[in-house]
Design a protein around this nucleic acid. Structure first.
Lengths: 144, 144
DNA sequence: TCTTGACCTTCCCATGATGGGAAGCCCCAC
DNA sequence: GTGGGGCTTCCCATCATGGGAAGGTCAAGA
């Protein structure tokens, strides 16, 4: 299987497959006489694992950890769960941060006429001249 | 005011102030005889505006747009609101994406014993061998 | 057989926003 | 005058991904 076929079979771009090999996330595969990389079902399986981990928001570093745990038959499920729960916490932290932004922005947008006049509470807030918006704004500031 | 004082007064690091100047987000300020940048209250006000916009998640490009609108006395509040609502939509899309990840991950973590045994539904899912988890997984895949 | 197009290879560059750090100049206080 | 801290510019790193150039290779069709 060429890199293009492995890419199609795994959903990982050829560019990324080479990159993953370069950074040591996956092992270098064999080459044909013309220097083309050759992939088998096992390599595609690994690539799909990576793809799936990435789609769940795991970083490449976390993905590497998970990949090693996957291949380590003597792992404990606790060690895997630990990686997952840490990632969940990180996601939830970022979600809360963004929700704080949304809350503030929605309030400001709600207060903004959205008409032809220049007067705008959104800009007033950004300029530090916000009247009542400073309440949730301060909260957002603390988060960010 | 030196760049260090402007940094302290605005909350923007000196490094970033120089960077913002370099990319044209803020105008180059005057220099003293020893080539030090000199800032006044107005520049600090602009820096605080940027800081606040960044803390609400606006990109530097969006921040530049907002900054220009702020300085354009003939702007319409509608144009400002448009930038804000587009950003809200973007935030909400990213939040939903991450919430999908969290949902899937929590389900998997819930199914994982987290004990000394190697059997792990989390790894099974990543490996594409998930039994029931494929339900919400598929959803996450569509989002990501 | 020759050409053409679609592969593959490596290498360099760009993104977005920020930080780290080196080398060198400058100023103030002691 | 010396030391420490501030300023300057310049280069590099992050994280994951894509774009594109230059060159080799293969397969199919004229």
């Amino acid at each position: 299987m060429n890199i293009g076929e492995a890419s199609a079979a795994s959903g990982v771009s050829a560019k990324m497959i080479r990159y993953y090999e370069e950074i040591g996330l996956i092992r270098p595969v064999g080459r044909t006489g013309n220097n083309y990389r050759v992939y088998g079902e096992e390599e595609v399986h690994v690539l799909r694992f990576i793809k799936r981990a990435r789609s769940l928001g795991f970083s490449l570093e976390e993905t590497e950890t998970l990949l090693k745990l996957w291949q380590d038959k003597s792992r404990t499920s606790a060690s895997v769960k630990e990686v997952a729960t840490a990632h969940i916490s990180d996601l939830e932290r970022r979600i809360a941060e963004m929700q704080g932004m949304v809350k503030t922005l929605k309030h400001l947008a709600h207060c903004c006429g959205g008409d032809d006049r220049p007067s705008c509470p959104i800009l007033d807030d950004l300029a530090g001249e916000g009247a009542g918006a400073r309440q949730s704004s301060t909260k957002t500031r603390q988060i960010a």
